[in-house]
């Protein structure tokens, strides 16, 4: 089950906690992976860890021209692209009244617009080949909202609506489009929390622990697999029961 041998995947934000775990898990299931991010050294380090079946494709998702090149580069490096994982994301948190236009624009641009551009570029060949997987990493806050994250929550909610729409267009062509919505995951971002904050968060998580990047990566492996062919337009919530929706 969930064998990805012979498949190819592009993972954005692969230098982050989640993206790195996703790339490793897809790779462990047999996929060839193209890893993308802004920090070349971090990508090279991950590539060295994976050893074979890996391609390093640095890209700044804030720059439209670089985004447009990424899928063609991945296709050139790997022959075809079977699995696109839109994982890259940034935050520029602030209470709504203090959110600057540029905080809004940057977050929407990197988190949502780049996912749109990459999906648009990837779906063409997927549709023609009658197979493909587009998986976008959204967030629980895209569904529940979160004080101080109006821009981030909007981008993540946008991803869900975008994915459902694309899913309807290409379902008959064997391409599935889904989202994964992580809850609180242990990453460098949550490491910055103090014990009291952490305790407060855990009170709202029935599983009584933070999620791990591997929890998210496992969901990604499932959605990327042939076994998930009949699952499309869905948002898979991986949050320890924090929100049951």
């Amino acid at each position: 089950m969930f064998d990805l041998s012979g498949k190819t995947a592009l993972v954005t934000g692969a230098t982050g906690g989640l993206g790195g775990a996703i790339a490793k898990s897809l790779h462990a299931q047999g996929a060839t992976v193209a890893i993308s991010g802004t920090r070349r050294e971090a990508l090279e380090a991950l590539a060295a860890e994976l050893k074979d079946r890996v391609h390093v494709l640095p890209c700044n998702l804030g720059v439209a021209e670089e985004v447009e090149k990424l899928v063609p580069d991945a296709e050139a490096a790997m022959g075809v692209l079977d699995i696109l994982v839109n994982n890259a994301g940034i935050t520029r948190d602030n209470i709504f009244m203090r959110l600057k236009d540029e905080d809004w624009e940057q977050v929407l641009n990197v988190n949502l617009t780049s996912a749109f551009r990459l999906s648009r570029a990837a779906v063409r060949a997927m549709m023609r080949r009658r197979t493909g997987r587009i998986i976008s990493i959204t967030s629980i806050v895209g569904v529940t909202g979160n004080a101080g994250q109006g821009n981030y929550a909007a981008a993540k909610a946008g991803m869900i609506g975008m994915s459902k729409s694309l899913a309807q267009e290409v379902a008959s062509r064997g391409v599935t489009v889904n989202c994964i919505a992580p809850g609180f995951i242990a990453t460098p971002m949550t490491d910055a929390l103090n014990d009291k904050q952490r305790e407060g968060i855990l009170k709202s998580v029935p599983a009584a622990r933070l999620g791990t990047p591997e929890d998210i990566a496992a969901a990604c492996v499932y959605l990327a697999s042939d076994e998930a062919a009949y699952v499309t337009g869905q948002t898979l919530h991986v949050n320890g029961g924090m929100a049951m929706i």
Partner: peptide, 9 residues
């Protein structure tokens, strides 16, 4: 409409 895109391709 998707067929027309595929035809063009």
């Amino acid at each position: 409409s998707l067929d027309t895109v595929e035809l063009v391709m």
